[in-house]
């Protein structure tokens, strides 16, 4: 498979999501399409630790509200490394800080296919 037909193949994708079943769905979806999932992790501190410990990250999917914590420190860390990511969240786009205005935004509930498409379109 080439990247044009399967853009996920061989990609290292970080998943940050505090709902177990959603996280597991995404994991399964990415893995079935040949991607390597980093995580999933449910907490900001776990995500930051994972980013720090991983040399190569191709993309990331971030839930915004992680058990009442906001994911923005993770987003900042990814931006600093130039890693593309998107928000997968129940919040409206307007509730997200202005510095992430250009970040793609998928509102829940979503199909994992849409996430993949949005990440590597």
């Amino acid at each position: 498979m080439t990247s044009t037909t399967n853009p996920l193949a061989g990609r290292r994708v970080l998943v940050v999501e505090d709902e177990y079943f959603i996280a597991d769905d995404l994991r399964r979806h990415f893995e079935e399409r040949g991607a390597e999932v980093l995580g999933p992790v449910p907490r900001v501190e776990d995500a930051l630790a994972l980013i720090a410990a991983t040399a190569e990250i191709d993309a990331a999917v971030l839930d915004v509200n992680l058990q009442d914590e906001m994911v923005y420190p993770v987003a900042d860390a990814l931006q600093a490394r130039g890693v593309p990511f998107l928000f997968a969240t129940g919040y409206e786009k307007t509730a997200i800080p202005a510095r992430f205005a250009d970040v793609r935004h998928c509102e829940k509930p979503f199909e994992p296919e849409r996430i993949a498409g949005a990440l590597f379109a």
């Binding site: 709902e19 079943f21 959603i22 769905d25 509200n65 969240t89 129940g90 409206e92 509930p109």
Partner: peptide, 13 residues
Amino acid sequence: QHRTRNLLGVVRS
């Protein structure tokens, strides 16, 4: 909104 949409995501899963 967050809770409702999250919930729908859970339902879906």
